[in-house]
Design a protein around this nucleic acid. Structure first.
Lengths: 112, 112
DNA sequence: CTATTTTATGTCATATTTGACATATTAGAA
DNA sequence: TTCTAATATGTCAAATATGACATAAAATAG
């Protein structure tokens, strides 16, 4: 029942293309949403790691608590740009963000 | 003369914070722009690798040639979201995007 | 070189994102 | 439990991104 997943995403506000006959997400759409969710998840985990409230983080990036909540929920109303800026403000490096996407568990890993 | 760099970015449309006394970009702003430029650079190189014109790529993502040009130039008027969607449409994987950010030269590298 | 294709740049109406705010829900402590 | 801090959810005006279009500049043939 892929219909379920599709509905959930659309309720969240994602615009999903008509895709295949079985109404599955095409791989690109899956990957795109996956990337957003991983990034937003990192925002949440890093904020917590630093013991900050959403309110504190919001001030640090010149935004509001509700925006941070939406960002951490991966809502489509928040951009990857804002998420990346937020991660950087949290002290997360470009390399760490890269490692998140490659699936490497060690955030500070660097290839030879 | 960091002033120069700052001016160039502002002419391009980037909004730069007041930053330090020497009007340098704070590290986060540097990193953010760096990330955007690396991503946009990958769009350009991958499009070329596939022998596509900007017009062709534009059609593939439901956009326009001018938007692709701006994206490849890393102009602030184009979002990371659009760049990522574009890369995925070009067949670039999440892992490859990650490797770009970690600085790994081999796009298909995966850590043990 | 000239013609043709490709890419860059500027503008604009529309669409989406944004911070701010109110308020609901949840988590955690006493 | 009740009280309180934290987080989630909904709305909205302002800010920003977007596709489309025109046209300039640059690249590439021929």
């Amino acid at each position: 029942m892929k219909q379920q997943k599709r509905k959930q995403l659309e309720e969240k506000g994602f615009r999903i293309g008509s895709a295949s006959d079985f109404l599955e997400l095409i791989p690109e759409e899956e990957s795109y949403i996956e990337i957003r969710l991983e990034i937003s998840g990192l925002v949440k985990s890093q904020r917590r790691k630093r013991g900050w409230t959403q309110q504190q983080l919001a001030r640090a990036i010149g935004s509001s608590q509700s925006r941070v909540a939406k960002m951490e929920a991966g809502e489509p109303s928040t951009s990857l740009d804002l998420m990346i800026k937020t991660l950087l403000r949290l002290g997360v490096s470009k390399t760490q963000i890269g490692n998140l996407l490659t699936g490497n568990l060690n955030p500070d890993f660097e290839p030879a």
